[in-house]
Computed example of a mutant assay.
Amino acid sequence: MIISQTPEGGGYRIKKLAGDASLRKYYRVNHGSDSFVLMHTEPFEESSYDTLLVHNFLERAGVPVPKMLAVEGVKGTILQEDLGDRTMLHQLAEAQGAENFEEIETALFKESLRLLADFHSSTAKPQGEKPVPGFSLAFDEEKLLWEVDFTIEHLFGSYLKRGLSEKEQESIRTPFEDICRRLAAEPRVFTHRDYHSRNLMLPESGTSHDGKLVCIDFQDARMGLRAYDLASILRDSYYQLSEEKVYALVDYYFDLAKKEEAGIDRAHFIKMFDLMSVQRNFKAIGSFTSFYGKRNDAMYIRFVGNTFENIRRNLAKFPEYKELRKLLFRYYYF
């Protein structure tokens, strides 16, 4: 057994932690001066469990991830190192009001983008080589459009309780088909898929990660365009950056990526970033409203408004999607 099953047994102290948006449960396990985190989920086959496969691949590639200390697939448990409670989002919140907040904010986001650029470059593999199942999966047109349909179902059905006619659904879906087609045609890298301020831990200095950002929640990684992860972090539903800073940071990442991938055009890259932000934010709204509809979990509903505003602002940069912007605005706000 990884741990005693009772808090009093064997000198263990066990405390339930706030979970993520999944059904996984997390516990802090203290034993003397040692501290660990236990993840509990449904039983799984260790040799084919995505969390373990992706973790081991990323660890070998040099991407900072939590150390896995013990695994019992039959019990659905993984014991891993304790990175503490401080996420990048927590650090940003704590810094609010500081005289040098702008410098702290910029430094944190630049660190996250250096890590992202390293993630994309260190996981690159020759064509045809597929070290983990995610290399056989991609944000192709079908997958991107599936995410759009998912959001249409849950935003208008589960949350707004607004029945859309077939014609209304097609008026939303048709321009998104074009958006997804354009995005799917872009070159692909191995993406984290959920790269944002809540999925970047900031352990204390002096730990094995020496106070540097560490990736978590990477089990759904798959192939996609660079802008997918970039939109996730810079157009984060949980944290709003000024548009001026967003584009300064896009430039910062672009210069890092250009070292690895020659021939990237800056203007086109920025345009695809804005377009990816529309689709990525739309999918985030689908996730938030599905939690509400499926699990009666309203915790994420408060992020829908900011995320919707991101979509409206970015669609305004594409005259060809003017009607989509008007439709979404009308259906959501009225």
Rank of each mutant, 00 (worst) to 15 (best):
I3P: 02
S4Y: 14
E8Q: 06
G9M: 01
I14P: 03
G19D: 03
D20R: 11
A21K: 11
A21F: 08
S22E: 12
S22I: 07
L23M: 13
R24T: 13
R24C: 09
Y26A: 10
Y26D: 13
Y27M: 11
Y27A: 10
R28C: 12
R28S: 13
G32E: 15
S33A: 13
S35Y: 07
M39P: 04
T41L: 00
Y49P: 06
D50R: 15
T51G: 01
L53F: 05
L53R: 15
L53G: 07
N56L: 01
L58T: 05
E59A: 15
R60W: 03
P66W: 04
M68N: 02
M68A: 04
E72I: 03
V74G: 08
K75V: 00
D82C: 01
D85L: 06
L92N: 10
Q96D: 10
G97V: 10
A98T: 11
E102D: 15
L108C: 14
L108P: 01
S112H: 05
A117R: 11
S121K: 13
T123I: 10
Q127G: 02
G128Y: 02
G128D: 06
K130D: 01
K130C: 06
P131R: 01
P133S: 07
G134M: 01
G134F: 02
F135W: 06
A138C: 10
F139S: 08
F139R: 09
F139H: 11
E142Q: 13
W146S: 15
E147W: 14
E147V: 14
F150S: 11
H154T: 09
S158K: 06
Y159A: 04
L160C: 09
S165L: 07
E166I: 12
K167S: 12
K167H: 07
S171N: 13
I172T: 04
T174F: 12
F176S: 12
F176N: 11
I179H: 09
C180G: 09
R182P: 04
R182S: 14
A185Q: 14
E186V: 07
R193A: 09
R198I: 02
N199M: 07
E204N: 00
S205D: 02
T207P: 08
G211S: 10
V214R: 08
V214W: 03
V214Q: 07
F218L: 02
A221E: 00
M223V: 00
D229W: 00
L230T: 03
A231G: 01
R235T: 08
D236E: 09
Y239G: 06
L241F: 12
S242F: 14
K245I: 09
K245D: 06
L256A: 10
K258G: 04
E261R: 09
A262R: 08
R266M: 05
H268D: 12
F269W: 06
F269S: 06
M272S: 08
F273K: 01
F273D: 06
M276G: 10
N281I: 13
I285A: 11
I285W: 11
F288M: 03
T289V: 06
S290W: 07
F291A: 07
Y292D: 06
N296G: 13
A298F: 08
A298H: 10
I301P: 07
I301L: 15
R302H: 03
F303M: 02
V304L: 10
N310C: 06
R313G: 03
R313E: 15
L315A: 05
A316N: 05
F318N: 07
E320F: 01
Y321E: 03
E323H: 02
E323I: 00
L327D: 12
L328R: 05
F329M: 04
R330L: 04
Y333P: 01
